[in-house]
Write a protein that binds this DNA or RNA. Structure first.
Lengths: 338, 338
DNA sequence: CGTAACAAATGAAACGATTCAAAGACGAGT
DNA sequence: ACTCGTCTTTGAATCGTTTCATTTGTTACG
């Protein structure tokens, strides 16, 4: 069983020094044509493959970037992750994805792991209180970029979306349709959700006779949305809200399923429905779902860019980029009623 | 800016030899209580974190397992990946996930990368012809397990699901409901899809007056399903199939949306609909979708187990595990018509 | 012919952990 | 006092690469 050949084996086989083989791999211009060909031939014959561990050890740093997300199953995060991977690949780096599942201990586990791997930097959607941990990392030369969370700018960089503005846009839109009694569905204990609610309340406050009721859902899933939807259907028609704003699309789709299945409530005629995130599935729902689009692609790409800036500045300069969300109107909030 | 401390710094600080520090970390029993405490104190004070590259270099192998999937966005694969990660974590390993996106060159890229990382083993849902590549890896002591693909047992191990049986189950189910004119939706150029079709055709052949029409879809997505659905709606009612079997749930949901949106076709009364994979969304679709459940959790877990077996046997013994899929009946194929 | 200038190739040192043969410490038994 | 065995600790060697100060080779020019 032939084990993997080392650079030394290649050197012997090609009758050159190890440094020369290394140069062929890293600085081809420094090596003469003839020698290069001979070395490359030996590499092919022996099936030599670089040992990345040795390279990292010498370099003192890996070509790896750690990314910790709240839930890879959530299309929002998988989309951000994909964009970050692409941007990193262009820079010759690799992204390792860790899923904290909103659990602080899992989050800590991945931070330990990434630190042992000597990652170039860390992208993280924090769940626990990671401020101290990030300070430590920065002192050790590992820059961090917060993702989907606004950072204290003298601590680290961040990319996020203006959640309050998003909430405002959604509520304003249904208010503009003439709806007055709104309901907000979500779990405000999550920071992003709380901000969206705050924005919605601001929009409501601008209209004299409008109101918004908060329906705390048990999670952020389709199933949780269905439960809320069922509770709405059970209400007397006059007690139902005229518009429902859900803190994410999964919830909204759940609500939609409850409402449409029972056929007693029409969307958007009786209840206008709007979600958040604009996941791929929103456009192809039974009643195409209006939503607030977040620029996931830009989030992932910018996160990598900010990380590169941090590296260049030696972790001294920090910058926070806040994107503006965008209203996407579809059938679930179509004209009727204005 | 304090850089990361090495094991040597810890040794100096605790006034012991480097070997002793290493023993504290790896063989705590060999070290006396007093020394251990002193070393641990120094580790804490200096904030020492193991350098994994150095460890790997010495060990000659990483604690990493590579996993290459066709599409992480697909719930089937993300579920398998999650299960594999959990199983690997229990064994003290880490799973690196690469997304080939059904592209042979991306697949090759990840194989190169994982080889440089000296992964313990490789789990792969192959897209290109990787047989030779796998042979090379095996020779070099990197065992491979095929995922969702049956392997040649004297080459490597594999975990898969009996796709033909799944196709048979689905078709048999709708035939048992009394439906005779079936349609199969999918892209038979994909191996798994072709097998499912073959199974369906077998079931149809067992019933004298039954037939199955193949509708080649442009992809395996919700959108592709909608297109097929629209084409069905455009047909004269008497030319429509009585049952539609889609090669995955995304397609089925797309078809469902087309059919229900136009309200001219009722599910399941006019057309019974069944998908494949039983993704989380199937149960909460407008009309809850019947499907063929694949044991994703078991696939991921078993893949890791087989990899462990390969490692123990030094890559000599291979084993293929084939799971049996399971019919899940929901409203989209409910009783009517039998 | 001597030498300056440049290009190419060399090979030892370093990265940070683990391993392991050897040395040291200590008590028990004779 | 001496030997033996057990438990602890030591520190040099090792993994495979990159780096860089040197050496070697080649060409050009006075």
């Amino acid at each position: 069983m032939s084990q993997t050949a080392s650079i030394k084996d290649v050197a012997t086989h090609a009758q050159v020094a190890v440094g020369t083989v290394s140069n062929v791999l890293n600085y081809p211009d420094r090596v003469s044509q003839r020698t290069k060909e001979r070395v490359l031939k030996s590499i092919a014959e022996l099936g030599f493959v670089r040992n990345d561990a040795a390279r990292q050890l010498r370099a003192g740093q890996s070509r790896t970037i750690g990314l910790i997300v709240l839930d890879v199953g959530n299309p929002f995060f998988s989309s951000v992750a994909r964009a970050a991977e692409d941007a990193a690949t262009a820079l010759g780096s690799v992204v390792l994805v860790g899923d904290s599942g909103q659990d602080a201990s899992r989050e800590a586990h991945y931070m330990d792991l990434f630190q042992e791997q000597r990652v170039q930097g860390l992208l993280i959607s924090p769940v626990g209180n990671v401020a101290e941990r990030i300070d430590t990392l920065r002192e050790r030369g590992v820059p961090t970029v917060l993702v989907d969370e606004l950072a204290d700018t003298d601590r680290c960089s961040s990319v996020s979306v203006d959640d309050e503005e998003g909430g405002y846009l959604a509520a304003k839109h249904v208010l503009d349709l003439g709806r007055r009694r709104l309901a907000f569905v979500g779990t405000p204990s999550i920071r992003q959700v709380a901000s969206r609610l705050k924005g919605a309340q601001r929009a409501v406050a601008e209209v004299s006779d409008a109101s918004v009721e908060v329906l705390d859902s048990a999670g952020q899933t389709v199933l949780a949305g269905r439960q809320v939807g069922n509770s709405l259907v059970e209400r007397a028609p006059e007690l139902r809200p005229e518009a429902v704003f859900c803190s994410n699309d999964l919830l909204a789709l759940g609500v939609m399923q409850s409402l449409t299945m029972l056929r007693t409530v029409r969307i958007p005629e009786d209840i206008a429905l709007i979600g958040y995130d604009d996941i791929d599935f929103a456009i192809s729902a039974v009643v195409p779902l209006s939503s607030i689009r977040q620029p996931t692609e830009a989030l992932g790409r910018t996160a990598i860019e900010l990380l590169a800036e941090e590296q260049e500045s030696g972790g001294t300069k920090h910058r926070s980029v806040v994107f503006t969300p965008e209203l996407v109107v579809r059938q679930s909030t179509a004209g009727a009623g204005s």
